[in-house]
Nucleic acid binder design. Structure first.
Lengths: 198, 198
DNA sequence: GTCTATAGACCGATAGAC
DNA sequence: GTCTATCGGTCTATAGAC
């Protein structure tokens, strides 16, 4: 489908099946979506799906890995000399990943550990959260962030704000991704008080 | 159970069934929890549950109403002369409600509109969100909040941060509820930059 | 006897898998 | 399309406290 020069009977490819599945999972919930729903959405019989993927859980696993790979990349790229600069970049890049991989990340953020696949995703996500928390700690130690609040609490709230955008952000909507990244960074680092001399 | 002076065979009361059900829904997801699961959790047969509640969806509806009533109350209580004061109070009181009614609010924030019950809850929730957004707008118009960001965007991010605490906050844990409310307010209004003269 | 809460067989519908 | 398992929910009968 994506590749026009394929041989054999035309039909869906794995990527398209995955994308449509993730959209459905996000609309109805993973547990609330049956393979029959997905088949109807694709306009094929249920059995056709099993030609592309081993099963329902594999669709979930692939989407979660995609999201986790994107978020991990944010931390692997070197991004500044000071911890403050690296944290700012991490916030900005996290927003970008959330926007670019919105469906997969949305699915990831709703996972509660209900199966081995979900538990594995939660473990990977926890690693990422821990590294972000370390970044906040380092920035506090450096003296560039307020030190009157527990760093891990700050980290949870900061990235809780970032992650919350999957609840409402829609690409092509009124808010541009770069505007969004700038707004979140401004709000997080400077607060929402009236602009003072700084 | 709660009332020691009841007649008839001892057993669960509605409130306890509801509480345990909501806990299970939050652990496994609403769709991922069967009435059989709940029965096993309670140590009774499935049919016993139907003596206390009309059905699975009624458990959801009652929990969502509970959460929505708590959140609505935050906005109905008069809380300050300026919009800024009212917004600050709304943030602080929202945190308190989230903490006090954590299970019900957690369930509410995960609802996606998958049934009429869920859609009704989303409508009520949207009303609340709209009123919070108006509060932010009023504070901006008043000049006490930064005006360089769209007020509805600010509102979404601010309460996205507040709401995100259901993802990790646990009563009895290391973070006290009042400390949490103070931290969120401080972070939101003053930002996470190193403390300057203010 | 009266009341509440329970057990467990059972129903039609639908799930995931193939 | 077909399989088996499980879903939410119903039914009748009964256990147990007054």
């Amino acid at each position: 489908m994506a590749d026009g020069s394929r041989r054999g009977r035309p039909g869906y490819d794995q990527q398209t099946v995955l994308r449509r599945a993730v959209d459905l999972f996000n609309r109805q919930g993973y547990d609330g979506t049956s393979m029959g729903d997905l088949a109807r959405e694709l306009g094929v019989g249920k059995s056709a799906i099993y030609h592309h993927v081993p099963g329902k859980e594999a669709l979930l696993a692939r989407a979660l890995d995609e999201a986790l790979d994107g978020l991990s990349a944010v931390l692997d790229a070197p991004a500044g000399d000071t911890a403050y600069d690296r944290l700012r970049a991490a916030v900005r890049d996290s927003v970008r990943v959330l926007v670019e991989q919105l469906p997969a990340v949305t699915l990831l953020l709703r996972v509660r550990g209900n199966s081995e696949v979900e538990l594995a995703a939660l473990r990977r996500r926890r690693e990422i959260d821990d590294r972000l928390a370390e970044l906040v700690s380092a920035a506090v130690a450096e003296g560039s962030l307020r030190g009157d609040l527990p760093p891990d609490l700050v980290s949870r709230l900061l990235f809780g704000m970032v992650n919350s955008l999957v609840e409402w952000y829609r690409p092509g909507g009124p808010v541009d991704a770069e505007v969004l990244a700038a707004a979140i960074t401004a709000l997080a680092f400077d607060g929402l008080g009236a602009i003072r001399s700084q």
